[in-house]
Structure formats: structure tokens, C-alpha cells
């Protein structure tokens, strides 16, 4: 029995297929989000990977910013619940989940059972999100993939504002004009993301066992900056970008089970 989770974000679309509510048999991420062909492509590729067709899927759930636009399913669960579920499934001891996606940053506090207890999201500003890093990557002419390696070469991280993406972009341009080294600027950018997320974490409440999901978790520079700010180690889920889609597939499994229980 297979269930499908689709996470339609602002910058990317992800799909995970789960066998019997436990074993992931496919996971795909496409760098095209809501309003694009991304969701369809992610699902098609995941089905190909699992050698299945849509008719093999017993239940599906959509999550993410574009969850209500998904035509493949009529059940939507919020990304807060899905990320928490996906992370908790892979790292059961986690009590604080940091998810940095394309458009928002979330800090989710879990209770002793791994269920969502409290959460906070960034306000409307893009600072501290994947979009912020994308803007900086463009200004610096360094790909997002390379930013982690640059971070490691920094000896004196530059000071970059954490309050506004547009102002921070101007600051980075000024730093470049002043001849600051790119590794130092990048380490400063990562620290500014970490400071922003740290503010959310302090508001939601501290926990020691911290896990991170979302595409930005693949950037080791951000992870290191966050560990430094939080003063605690951070565990990364195996496929951080797919955590939300995995959570959605788990919710789809619940739905399948409850339908079968009630005979619906």
C-alpha cells in the first residue's frame, strides 16, 4: 500500500511515496514551486522512481504554500504539522525543529510525544529565509551549493544586517566595494540568518534536541552558524528538503487507515 505526500513550496516542489506508512520508496525535489509545473513534475518523477502509477496510490496529502492549488489531492495539512511529523519520524528524539524554506523560516517546538506543541514563523520579511540566501548568492555570483565551502574559509565574518533583505543586499554590495573577502561576507550572511532564526527560537522556547529540515539545511555554513548562535548541536534529517513531503505522506497513511477503520 502506497501513500503520497506533496510539498508545494514557493521555490520548489517535493514528492515522497511511502510504502505501508513506513518505508520511503521515492523522493523527488524540483526547483519550481507553486503556480509552476513543479508539483506535477515532482509527482511524475516520484512515481517513475517507485515504478508506480497514480492509481497505485491509496491516499495523498498536499502541504506547503501551494497546498490548496494541488489538483492531485483534496486533503491539505499545514507545513508546520508536516515538517514536524517528517522530522519526528526520522529523528524521534528531536524537540525543536528548525525549518528554513524558500519563503519562510519556522521554529516548531515538539512535546514529549513528538507532537507539535508550539510554533513560530518569520513575519512577512524574507530575511532569514532561503530567498534571502538566493538574493545574496546572486549578488556574490556564487551558487547556493558553494556557499557552505566558502563559509569554512572565513577568518573574520563580516557584519550583515538581519532585519531586512533589501538593506542586507545593499550592505553586501558595500562590503564587496570595500574589498571584503567573499568567504567573510558569506559567513556574515549565514550568521544573519542564524540570528533571525535564533530570535524565533528564543520566542518559542528553548529545547536541547534540535533538528533541522528544509532545503537550506543542505548549506553547512548556515547549519554551523546556527549551531554557534544557539550554542547547541543540530541534527539534520537525511533528506532535509523532503521532510515536509514525508510528513504529508505519513498523514496520508493515517487518512488511509482511518478510512479503512470506518469503512469509508
Amino acid at each position: 500500500m502506497y501513500t503520497l505526500g506533496i510539498d508545494i513550496g514557493s521555490a520548489s516542489s517535493k514528492a515522497v511515496i511511502l510504502a505501508d506508512g513506513l518505508r520511503p520508496v521515492a523522493g523527488q525535489a524540483i526547483q519550481a514551486g507553486t503556480g509552476s509545473s513543479g508539483p506535477k513534475q515532482a509527482v511524475e518523477r516520484a512515481l517513475d522512481e517507485a515504478k508506480l502509477t497514480l492509481s497505485d496510490i491509496a491516499a495523498s496529502v498536499a502541504t506547503g504554500y501551494g497546498r490548496f492549488t494541488c489538483e492531485l489531492t483534496d486533503r491539505q495539512v499545514s507545513e508546520i504539522s508536516c515538517h514536524a511529523r517528517g522530522v519526528s519520524h526520522q529523528l524521534p528524539s528531536a524537540r525543536l525543529v528548525i525549518d528554513i524554506g524558500g519563503q519562510d523560516a519556522k521554529v516548531i517546538r515538539l512535546d514529549a510525544q513528538g507532537a507539535v506543541w508550539q510554533f513560530l514563523m518569520n513575519e512577512k520579511c524574507a530575511a532569514g529565509t532561503g530567498r534571502f540566501l538566493e538574493v545574496m548568492s546572486r549578488v556574490l555570483e556564487i551558487s547556493l551549493r558553494e556557499m557552505g565551502a566558502y563559509h569554512d574559509r572565513s577568518s573574520r565574518p563580516a557584519a550583515v544586517s538581519s532585519t531586512c533583505t533589501v538593506f542586507a543586499e545593499s550592505e553586501v554590495i558595500s562590503l564587496l566595494a570595500a574589498g571584503a573577502a567573499k568567504p567573510d561576507i558569506i559567513a556574515g550572511i549565514h550568521r544573519s540568518v542564524a540570528v533571525k532564526v535564533c530570535g524565533l527560537a528564543s520566542r518559542v522556547g528553548w529545547e536541547d534536541d534540535i533538528a533541522m529540515s528544509g532545503g537550506v539545511a543542505r548549506n553547512q555554513g548556515v547549519v554551523k552558524a546556527l549551531e554557534a548562535e544557539l550554542g547547541r548541536p543540530i541534527k539534520i534529517t537525511p533528506e532535509p528538503q523532503l521532510a515536509g513531503a514525508l510528513g504529508a505522506a505519513l498523514y496520508a497513511f493515517d487518512q488511509y487507515q482511518s478510512k479503512n477503520k470506518t469503512g469509508g
Partner: peptide, 20 residues
């Protein structure tokens, strides 16, 4: 949209607690 996500998440938390 942001408020929608927050409110939906909150409702999900409350439902899950009630079920538990």
C-alpha cells in the same frame, strides 16, 4: 496566506491533542 498556515496549524495541533 501566512495567517492561514498559522491558523490551520493551530487547529491541527488542537485536534491532535483532543484525539490523544
Amino acid at each position: 496566506e501566512q495567517i492561514r498556515t498559522r491558523i490551520q496549524s493551530f487547529a491541527e495541533i488542537l485536534r491532535a491533542q483532543r484525539a490523544r
